[in-house]
Design a protein around this nucleic acid. Structure first.
Lengths: 246, 246
DNA sequence: TTAGTAAGTTGGACAGTACAACTAAGTATG
DNA sequence: CATACTTAGTTGTACTGTCCAACTTACTAA
């Protein structure tokens, strides 16, 4: 089996006309969370082994597809996500793929990029030793990233910001119970601009997205109603974007 | 070079830790056009050579990435598009990737899917001998497709219909000069529902998308103003969707 | 001249956001 | 214990853009 699929290039492969070079195939994940009132992304430090490209640099979590372990691309992404964060069922969406002759010095390679949203609570626990959260500065992150990962990260941020304008995606960044002002704050952090309170509330409450729990968030001032995501928590698409800044 | 990247698995590859099976890597394209007042997709008939999976079935145009010829994935997609249609600069967008152990009987394989929009005029000319247009019936097409191409096609139709609600994508299905009612008709064909004339006109004319040419479309009744896409023809994103049917 | 048809315009109803002022419910302070 | 402060949540008006329907315009055909 391995011989047929792999680099070995056995007789069976030759008969099927598959005796030509194959690109490397990887999966990378852009994992977002909110920490300290800022959007963060998870990065891992690359090893320094023999022949490792970009030794010691930071990169998106990911790696080669394992044709023995991974049934499909998404399973591969979920495996890598679980390995680095311990999170098993986040919001996970395919972002796109990047493939070229030169993005990896080891040869023609293509990566299938995913992006995931996880709540802050999950973000603090169970991190792999080599993984670390970095705050987003604009469209990028402080350290220089390996491969074309800066470009992939930028695409992920763009996609996230864009979708937040007309979907309920930030709900997946929230803990199990949250207030409407907290949800609005999350939207504002991702979008990096303030939103109208009343329009925001109208939109969220008229969507079939959240339901109140019989509790309030107590604080130094007026308590706020707590909500949770409804059971069937598919992302909601709104018919309008929030109005653009100008 | 080939030995390092390919199935041969030479010493260099082994030193880099790359001596493991690699998935097959392909690119497939969903090419849409409007013909005879209906959305059509281009399919090719598969060969019947030794070891060819799905012999004689119809499939999306595509094939293996050629690590020698293709600089990157998009170049590969453009090459395959040009080979089948002769079209060189259509609207081309990455759709997603599909990869699993079982989608190709020859082994673990991953395809990078693109979708393209081409005008009817280009659709009639320069078709490859094995390529053929098929009208869309709902989300699919009459013949049974090879691999998981029915699923990919469905994703493409879904994405197209979805984006047409709030973008100017149908403009890329139009000939160089067209009238507003013709553009509206194209929207209606893709969405499979009628749109409001006045709202449609307001939306299109206030977007920085089209400009009138000093000509009219003559017909059996009142002539219509002809328009063309403006030079910088990036797709326009509208702030609202057209209102849903109910 | 008249009927017919499709292009294009106009105006009122409606929905949802923008903006801003307001009320409500708690804590902290003198 | 009253008052200030803060944040939660509501209310009302303006505005934008769609929905719906009726209207005018420009042409052909009979």
């Amino acid at each position: 089996m391995a011989a047929r699929q792999g680099q070995g290039g056995g007789a069976a492969a030759r008969a099927g006309g598959l005796d030509f070079p194959r690109p490397l195939t990887t999966v990378d994940i852009v994992i977002f969370t909110i920490r300290l009132e800022a959007l963060h992304v998870l990065l891992v430090r690359r090893g320094q082994g023999e022949g490792e490209p970009f030794p010691d640099a930071f990169a998106l979590p990911g790696g080669f597809v394992d044709v023995a372990k991974d049934a499909d691309l998404e399973a591969c992404a979920r495996r890598k996500l679980a390995e680095k964060t311990g999170v098993v069922s986040p919001y996970l969406e395919q972002l796109g793929s990047w493939g070229s002759a030169h993005r990896d010095p080891r040869g023609w390679s293509a990566t299938h990029a995913y992006f995931a949203l996880i709540p802050a609570s999950a973000a603090e626990a169970a991190l792999a030793a080599d993984a670390q959260w970095f705050p987003l500065a604009g469209m990028s992150v402080k350290p220089k990233l390996a491969f074309d990962h800066a470009e992939i990260l930028q695409a992920a941020v763009r996609r996230l910001r864009n979708k937040v304008e007309y979907t309920s995606l930030p709900a997946y960044l929230m803990p199990e119970e949250f207030t409407l002002p907290e949800l609005q704050r999350t939207y504002e952090i991702v979008l990096d601009r303030p939103l109208e309170k009343s329009a925001f509330r109208t939109r969220m409450l008229s969507a079939d997205l959240i339901e109140p729990v019989a509790k309030m968030r107590k604080g130094p001032n007026r308590p706020a109603q707590l909500y949770r995501l409804k059971a069937a928590a598919a992302p909601v698409y709104f018919a309008r974007t929030f109005n653009a800044p100008e």
